[in-house]
């Protein structure tokens, strides 16, 4: 696909040119970088270093209305995204873009999920080559790469004064057309520079784990006493799952507030005891040990069984944000060495 050059000082113009899109970009709120709908391109904060949440919520929101119940208690679908503007998510890290690749088969296969798929199909991802990974990043250990275009529609690489803009998909091509006025062609020198940066990127990832054989180890040592040790620190909060770009588990609840009744889907977390609690009181995963084990099993065994790849993109958020330092990479190493 095509390559362009975007002067950094014309980025705002480029964003403004995307009139036919709803633009989501990282913005600074309460000292955090979060993905939000922006109306003014100046709000965009292209600080890729501090994103405690992935842009997963743009397509798979934390709470989403599945059905609306009318006065006669009949179920109706809420108005979907059909007929609305397509969305652009700007400033996606390559690992988070891969996260959508992990979510896709869950929502596409067997019983296609219209809520996810409508938004997924009308959303375009503009990513940034990740030049300064987090200390806990380990994307290269799970099949990712800080400069990978996988899952993205457009990839930008920071060349200092300009962005090197690669169009990856035909959806991306459309965006490039809309912003064509501020794009130019890169020189061959800039092309070389970009390739050099891409080549260097993986070396900046400082944490690594050879995941080869992990799946069979997890299975083989499922009843090992070590799991109890690994989960000793865990406090059963939902941080690791809520900040994970690939976690997709949800709860469905009917809520009535002020005469409105809806059936909603809300993110749920396998770390919560209630998640698997039967109405009878029986809980197949009663303690933190089973729950932590299940999460690792899901990511590194079940996901491989179901979709052929580990359900982890190595973004490192679950490690960085865990309040008690439950370290996924360290835990994987322990399992690996069993």
């Amino acid at each position: 696909m095509e390559h362009f050059l975007l002067e950094k000082n014309r980025l705002n113009e480029f964003l403004s040119a995307l009139r036919n899109y709803e633009v989501f970009a990282p913005v600074r709120k309460v000292g955090l970088t979060v993905f939000e709908l922006i109306t003014n391109p100046k709000e965009a904060m292209l600080d890729l270093k501090n994103q405690p949440q992935s842009p997963k919520r743009v397509i798979f929101p934390q709470s989403e209305i599945l059905l609306v119940f009318d006065k006669n208690n009949a179920a109706k679908e809420p108005k979907g995204r059909v007929g609305q503007k397509p969305q652009v998510v700007f400033g996606v890290r390559p690992c988070d873009a891969r996260g959508f690749h992990m979510l896709d088969p869950v929502f596409e296969r067997e019983y296609p999920d219209p809520y996810y798929l409508q938004k997924r199909q009308s959303t375009l991802l503009v990513g940034f080559h990740c030049s300064e990974p987090y200390p806990n990043c380990f994307c290269t250990s799970v099949g990712g790469n800080p400069s990978s275009p996988e899952g993205l529609d457009i990839l930008l690489t920071d060349l200092g004064e300009q962005y090197f803009l690669e169009v990856i998909t035909s959806k991306g091509e459309q965006v490039a057309k809309e912003g064509a006025a501020v794009l130019s062609s890169p020189t061959s020198q800039q092309q070389t520079e970009k390739e050099k940066l891409s080549g260097m990127a993986p070396q900046k990832i400082r944490r690594t784990i050879d995941t080869e054989g992990i799946a069979s180890k997890i299975e083989k040592h499922f009843d090992h006493s070590l799991w109890r040790e690994l989960s000793g620190k865990c406090i059963s909060c939902g941080i690791c799952t809520y900040t994970c770009p690939t976690c997709h588990c949800f709860d469905i609840q009917d809520e009535r507030v002020r005469g409105r009744a809806n059936r909603l889907r809300i993110w749920d977390s396998c770390m919560f005891p209630e998640y698997t609690l039967h109405a009878s009181g029986h809980n197949p995963r009663p303690t933190r040990t089973e729950r932590l084990k299940n999460r690792m099993y899901h990511k590194f065994k079940q996901n491989i069984d179901l979709y052929g790849v580990p359900g982890c993109v190595g973004c490192g958020r679950c490690i960085t944000l865990c309040p008690e330092n439950v370290d996924l990479v360290a835990n994987l190493k322990v399992i690996k060495n069993l």
């Binding site: 869950v106 929502f107 067997e110 019983y111 999920d113 997709h248 588990c249 949800f250 709860d251 469905i252 749920d268 396998c270 998640y275 698997t276 609690l277 039967h278 109405a279 197949p284 299940n294 099993y297 899901h298 065994k301 079940q302 069984d305 179901l306």
Partner: peptide, 19 residues
């Protein structure tokens, strides 16, 4: 078998036994 279920269509995650 039975487990707690919410979606019934293999998406909400909670009813897994192994894979």
């Amino acid at each position: 078998l039975e487990n707690r279920m919410k979606c019934g269509i293999g998406k909400c995650g909670r009813c897994n036994v192994g894979s």
